[in-house]
């Protein structure tokens, strides 16, 4: 049970939040090509190291925010509100 640093609630058990995965910028739906769109939908960097990812403070303040997490160690750092 890792601790996720919520910008409002302080460190919280990860079970109180939902991880929505690595941050992937959404292309402009009106102009995006199918291949750009499907890269957004499916392709992920999936690094073994630092990744920027989004969490939703589901049982707490209901804020979406991003943090950096090292997927090799589960160490977390930095945070900002989306």
């Amino acid at each position: 049970m890792i601790l996720v640093p919520c910008p409002n609630c302080g460190p919280r058990n990860s079970s109180d939040l939902r991880n929505t995965g690595e941050v992937v910028p959404r292309p402009d739906a009106a102009t995006a090509s199918l291949s750009e769109w499907r890269s957004y939908l499916y392709l992920r960097d999936n690094p073994a190291g630092w990744v920027t990812e989004t969490w939703y403070c589901r049982s707490g303040c209901r804020t979406y925010f991003t943090i950096e997490r090292n997927t090799a160690t589960n160490e977390v750092r930095g945070l900002e509100r989306t």
Partner: peptide, 8 residues
Amino acid sequence: EDTVGLPE
């Protein structure tokens, strides 16, 4: 202009 899943 935009809607969820528009290109698909």
